[in-house]
Structure formats: structure tokens, C-alpha cells
Design a protein around this nucleic acid. Structure first.
Lengths: 210, 210
DNA sequence: TTGTCCATGTAAAAAGTTACATGATTCG
DNA sequence: CGAATCATGTAACTTTTTACATGGACAA
């Protein structure tokens, strides 16, 4: 009936007060704030930290981090100071502001519904399409990867033995880091156990078939 | 030296043969093929299945699924037939083609390096910013969510008891689904155990402080 | 008659990945 | 002297999320 459709509204285009829509931080922003909450770092430091998933359960490339830092600074959640460095541009050291710390605290304590994705399990769901050999090889390879992961976690864990006092106190960053590491260790261990169970299943089936 | 920079090449823009760049399927495409490999479904069915993470370790909205189905059909990995339905548009039933099955098999068996993200653990890393009470409440809430998740997994598990024969045979889709379910159950159980450990830690610290 | 389920699409924005770009220092 | 590390940015693309749009059937 109404033929003037097809045209949709855009927000922030004309009349919108522009204030209700601001404060767009997002998970990456909080990931960065979380790292800055313990010590000041450069964008490069952050990128190094978030390049590998070891010890920090979030990843990002530097191409995502630098623009995000600029946005955080625009919202006064971080502040930067130029320091001596070796790059072709200024080297900036970022510090979290009290407002940033507040925002981080608020975010941590806000409702969370996690969506778990696992490409590994997605593939396992279609594993029946492979020959038992190939399936076995696939699982064995993932098991190996988990083992390596476990080794680096355990490696990281030894660094905590030095600071036994702080680790016991849940109001310290050291404790929080220790807790996430425990989680990571548990998770890979269990995945290894599952892989072993799976390998057994595949072997049993092959024996039964002969 | 060369001042004609700033201009970057675009692929698929002009000369490129357009064949080397095709075959863009992506993880979502394979997730769909994986579901279609066991039975034919409509886009709506797929969207229902992938809306909740229960039982399938990948999620997607219908707005992502319909265009993806069109692309899969353009690449002859799926085929559709119009069936009687109740929507304002044609209701299409999608079927995987032999080529689709091949593509799926190849993907399952290709190298995989998983990047694990967990917003839960990301938040835990900054949990030290909260008061022990609030931290406790946060962990307790996540524990509760895991418990609910576990219940629905276990619920789903009972449906497998009927098909005991197929579940034992790793060349069946039923086995693969069972295996992923086992993984899911294990994972939430362990997360619950971790939450309990965490709650203990928080309690101990509170007692010690008095 | 109001709301949910069926059923399929498009638009726009946000988030994430890959590639381009620059340039000094330091190590082998 | 070439490669890696430090150091920061932009461009282009892909993926995911959120919202808009439509409309019949059927149940409370």
C-alpha cells in the first residue's frame, strides 16, 4: 500500500541528539582498558600482548588496537604521553584515567551471556564424513596443539610462584591473572582428555570392523 | 620515489580472471553444509538451529544465513526446491550436492588453528576491581548460567539413548553429534567446578580479612 | 485482536582480518 | 647487509550483529 518504503532511516544522520548514541566502547575497548588497568603501555605493547591468546583470553591485531586507542582517548578513558621511541612516528605511552577505570569496573559487573563458538567442534560434527584414519589424524593433531598450549600455560604459571602472597588475595590483579590461567590450564587438559576418549572410540570402531 | 602510491589495487576489479578468487565459502558456509549433510532443511530451520548454541558449536542470525545459502547455491554446493509454506515468499528446501559434500569433507580435514576468545575470562581478568561481594555475585551468576546450559545438554543427551547402535559407530552423524555433546557437557561441568573454586577463593579471602 | 510462529529477504553498522606503508635500530 | 624488533598508522575486505520489512496462519 504505502509505496514510499525502501527508504530506511539512518541514525545520527539528521535530528538524533548524538548523545544517546555515543560512548561506543565495545569488548575490545574493555580488553585494552583491562590491560592498562595494571600498568601503562604503548599500543605496541598491547598489540604484542593480544597477538597470542596465551594468558589473555582475547586477541586483536595492531590495526584494530591503534584506532581503538584513539577512540578511548577521545572519550577520556585513557590518556597518552609521548615518550622516546624508535619508530618513524611518535611513541605514545597510554595510561588509564579514573573515568576509564570506572567504565571498566561497570563493564565487568554488567550482565554477560556468552556465545561459545568452536570451529573444532563444528568440524567434529562433520567428522563422520572422513575415513577413520583421517579422523584419527585430525583429532591427534588437535591433541598435539592442546599439549603445546598446555606447556606454554604451565610455563607461564611458574612465574606466579614468586608472588605467592598477592596471588592469594582476590583484590589483586595477580590473583585475577592466576585465576584465568587456572581456567586455561583446566580447559586444555580437558580437551586433551576428550581427544584421548575420541581416539579410543575411533580405534575401537576400527577393531570391531575387522 | 614512486609518487603514484596511495592508489592500491583492488582484486576482482578489472583484469583478474575471477576464477582464482572464487570459491569463497568461509566457516559459516561449512557450518550450513554440515547441517545439510544430515538432512535437507529450509533457511528457517537452519536459522533456528544456529540461533542457540545448544548442541551446535556455531551461531548465526538468519540475516547471515539467507545470503550465504544463495552463495552456496551459486557455487553449486547446495540446491533448492520450492515447497509449500506459509511465508510471504517462496519457502525453499535446501539439499547438499555431491560437490557440497566433497567441499565439506575437504574443509573438515584441512589445517585448523583455533583462536579461543572468552569474554567471561576477559572480565575475570579485571575482577579485582570489584568488591569481593560483587565479584562473588558475578561468578555465582555465571555458574548458574552454566548449570542451566548443562541441564539442556543433558536433556539433549537423553535423546541419544534411543539410538545406541549408531552412536557407537564413528562413521555416523549420530556419533559425531554425540561426541560434540560430550565435549559440551564436559566443558560446562568444568566451568562450574572452576566457578566453585573461585567462590571458595573469594570466601576465604573475605574470612581472612576479618 | 493481539501476539507468536512460520518464512525470507535487505540495509546498515560494528567488529575483525589481511595487506599496505614507513623508518630507525640492533643482532647475527 | 639482511632480518628481526620496535612503533604507529591507514585501506580494503570479510564477518557478524542489529534493525527494517513483509505477510499469512493460528492460538489465547
Amino acid at each position: 500500500m504505502n509505496s514510499s518504503s525502501q527508504r530506511t532511516f539512518r541514525r545520527g544522520d539528521s535530528s538524533a541528539p548524538r548523545s544517546a548514541r555515543s560512548s561506543r566502547v565495545g569488548t575490545l575497548g574493555y580488553a585494552i582498558l583491562g590491560l592498562l588497568a595494571t600498568k601503562h603501555r604503548t599500543g605496541y605493547d598491547l598489540a604484542q600482548q593480544m597477538k597470542t591468546p596465551i594468558g589473555y583470553m582475547w586477541t586483536a591485531q595492531h590495526s584494530q588496537i591503534y584506532p581503538q586507542l584513539a577512540r578511548l582517548e577521545a572519550e577520556s578513558l585513557v590518556r597518552s604521553s609521548v615518550i622516546a621511541g624508535r619508530g618513524p612516528r611518535d611513541t605514545k605511552l597510554y595510561t588509564i584515567t579514573p573515568a576509564g577505570r570506572d567504565a571498566l569496573r561497570t563493564w565487568v559487573d554488567s550482565p554477560l551471556i556468552e556465545v561459545t563458538r568452536s570451529e573444532f567442534m563444528l568440524r567434529v560434527r562433520s567428522l563422520w564424513l572422513l575415513s577413520p584414519d583421517r579422523a584419527r589424524a585430525f583429532i591427534a593433531e588437535q591433541r598435539e596443539r592442546c599439549q603445546q598450549r598446555l606447556d606454554s600455560y604451565l610455563d607461564e604459571g611458574t612465574s606466579f610462584s614468586a608472588q605467592t602472597l598477592e596471588v592469594a588475595d582476590p583484590t589483586t590483579a595477580a590473583f585475577a591473572a592466576f585465576a584465568t590461567l587456572q581456567y586455561g590450564i583446566m580447559r586444555v587438559r580437558d580437551t586433551i582428555a576428550w581427544c584421548d576418549w575420541m581416539l579410543d572410540q575411533l580405534d575401537d570402531a576400527q577393531l570391531g570392523q575387522r
